[in-house]
């Protein structure tokens, strides 16, 4: 009446116990996955992980705020003058050095569409939503956005020009599905 699992060296007799034990542990491991995975985003949440937006509905000089993954996304139709202003800026004056072109994605023809600027509307300082108003000073000193919380000024390319925010407004992943429709939430598949 010896207790089997007690000798130091595993014997042939112990093999079956090791096999059983391994099988139990493996089964428990597989069972753990559903218990963990159920907390991941569910199918209905994932169905809104990407949104499509038709930019042809925009008017020149205006912006629309799309809701994407619980965040506001600024989609702005920039005027020729605004584009020129954004392009002509010397990047060396910027805190977060990015040219205007680096903040755009190409359309189906491979060319940039500088009139449409897409950026996540959350101030990179402490997460407030910056204000937009090209007609008066609410949009800040640089013709872009102004964050009312701690006074960060962004230009019309969403780049930080003045104030405490450390980086430019984040550009979400997006691509042109057609000439006028962008899909936010996904990069162009190469």
């Amino acid at each position: 009446m010896s207790t089997p699992v007690e000798s130091d060296e595993p014997t042939r007799r112990d093999f079956i116990h090791i096999a059983s034990g391994t099988a139990v542990v493996a089964g428990a491991g597989f069972l753990a996955w559903p218990l963990i995975d159920q907390m991941n985003p569910s199918a209905d949440t994932l169905s809104l992980a990407t949104i499509e937006f038709d930019v042809s509905s925009l008017e020149e000089g205006a912006q629309v705020v799309a809701k994407w993954r619980g965040k506001p996304v600024f989609i702005r139709y920039r005027t020729a003058a605004e584009i020129e202003e954004a392009r002509s800026l010397d990047v060396n004056v910027l805190k977060d050095k990015q040219t205007d072109s680096e903040r755009l994605v190409p359309g189906p023809d491979g060319k940039l569409k500088p009139q449409y600027l897409v950026a996540i509307g959350i101030c990179t300082h402490l997460g407030c939503v910056p204000l937009f108003d090209p007609k008066d000073t609410k949009g800040g000193e640089y013709g872009g956005w102004f964050c009312p919380c701690h006074g960060s000024h962004y230009d019309n390319s969403g780049r930080i020009r003045k104030g405490p925010a450390p980086t430019n407004l984040e550009v979400p992943p997006y691509w042109y599905m057609s000439d006028t429709v962008i899909q936010i939430g996904k990069e162009a598949s190469v």
């Binding site: 559903p34 159920q38 991941n40 199918a43």
Partner: peptide, 13 residues
């Protein structure tokens, strides 16, 4: 119904 249709593994749990 949401659990059974949308939650990951909800149809089992």
């Amino acid at each position: 119904q949401h659990i059974n249709r949308n939650i990951n593994w909800g149809w089992m749990l």
